[in-house]
């Protein structure tokens, strides 16, 4: 398990911001994976080492400005089902970590 997450969470490469829309709100960098079950937020950006991964997450509907909601965690806490763009999709933590959000109160 640790091997797996270490592999997908490589943080050394230059991040690719897709797209760079939000201003310098660096102090509030929350990611989707930090969202409690049942909590909601709004996507502010997608950051991934691999541009193809970022592009895919965007194509799946995780676009800045889109509301997201955490629906359900798998028995071993990963992956997690999210509700976005009107449908439900499960993401692993590694992918949810790529998605920055602004939590909604």
């Amino acid at each position: 398990m640790s091997v797996m997450s270490a592999m997908s969470l490589r943080r050394h490469a230059a991040p690719v911001l897709v797209p760079a829309s939000v201003g310098p709100v660096e102090e509030r960098v929350a990611t989707l994976s930090a969202l409690r079950c049942g909590a909601a937020g709004t996507v502010t950006g997608v950051v991934a080492d691999d541009p193809a991964v970022a592009q895919r997450l965007v194509d799946l509907g995780f676009v800045p400005g889109t509301p997201v909601e955490t629906v359900r965690r798998a028995p071993l806490r990963d992956p997690v089902v999210y509700r976005v763009a009107g449908y439900e999709i499960a993401l692993r933590k590694a992918q949810a970590d790529c998605i920055r959000i602004a939590p909604t109160a």
């Binding site: 691999d50 991964v53 999709i89 499960a90 692993r92 590694a94």
Partner: peptide, 10 residues
């Protein structure tokens, strides 16, 4: 190769 993203529509 690197691990590619996992996502699964439900």
């Amino acid at each position: 190769g690197p691990a590619l993203p996992f996502y699964m529509e439900m």
